[in-house]
């Protein structure tokens, strides 16, 4: 049982990292959203497995929230927003996809190295999980940084959050995981609303910043 539990959770967490890479690789918005849905599904599977392994029923709730909210509601909403606002469908990369992937690989390596230093304090399962979770977090951040489009920034943030949920679920017996998941869902919802309400994509992040400098510097 122990061996199986480890293998499955390891595989699922690895899948999460893989989907993160796939997210980085996408250069069209709709494909990005679909891929994000996939990641959310993997996450909910992973969390559900943890619930099963740890025999913690509240993690099922978390898994369910992840499935419903992240895999279905948010991607759909974003689909509609993109359509409504007529946002450019291409994702603008600041650096090329290849470089991004390389950087991503380096980040995963970094996460592994950092985690390897942890001696025997935490059990192996948690440690591996944690390494993957950290990778997902870092990859999510990387995505926020290298993508110019606001929607992809949102997706990056959500993927980062998936890493957090993974880590929290992997921590044996950690209380408040559900609350964290809910809190983050609220946060994500607010981000989405922000994008929608204030058309932030147009206003703040898709314009050439330097052209505005003279205007912005006035009075700061």
């Amino acid at each position: 049982m122990k061996g199986l539990a480890f293998d499955v959770s390891h595989m699922l967490a690895g899948g999460l990292v893989l989907t993160s890479f796939l997210l980085l690789y996408q250069n069209r918005l709709y494909a990005l959203l679909n891929m994000y849905s996939l990641q959310a599904v993997v996450l909910s599977l992973s969390v559900a497995w943890q619930a099963f392994v740890q025999d913690a029923s509240h993690l099922y709730v978390t898994a369910f929230i992840a499935l419903l909210f992240k895999a279905v509601v948010i991607p759909l909403t974003l689909h509609r927003i993109i359509a409504r606002l007529g946002i450019q469908r291409d994702v603008e990369n600041v650096v090329g996809a290849g470089t991004t992937m390389l950087a991503g690989l380096a980040l995963v390596a970094l996460a592994e190295v950092v985690m390897l230093r942890i001696a025997g304090g935490a059990d192996v399962l948690a440690r591996e999980d944690l390494a993957f979770a950290l990778s997902v977090v870092l990859l999510g951040l990387l995505m926020m940084v290298v993508r110019r489009n606001a929607v992809s920034m949102v997706v990056g943030f959500m993927s980062l959050e998936n890493g957090l949920i993974l880590a929290a679920a992997g921590a044996k017996g950690m209380p408040l995981v559900v609350e964290f998941a809910v809190a983050f869902s609220v946060l994500v919802a607010l981000v989405v609303i922000g994008v929608f309400l204030f058309r932030i994509s147009e206003r703040f992040d898709s314009i050439d910043a330097e052209a505005l400098d003279s205007f912005r510097e006035r009075g700061r």
């Binding site: 935490a122 950290l134 920034m153 980062l160 959050e161 950690m174 981000v191």
Partner: peptide, 27 residues
Amino acid sequence: WKYFILGSVGIALALFGTILIYMAAQP
């Protein structure tokens, strides 16, 4: 908006740290 985004990322990082503390304490 700037506050919100940067704050959210900060909060995410803090949560990760909190989880790590829990994992250190749990054994």
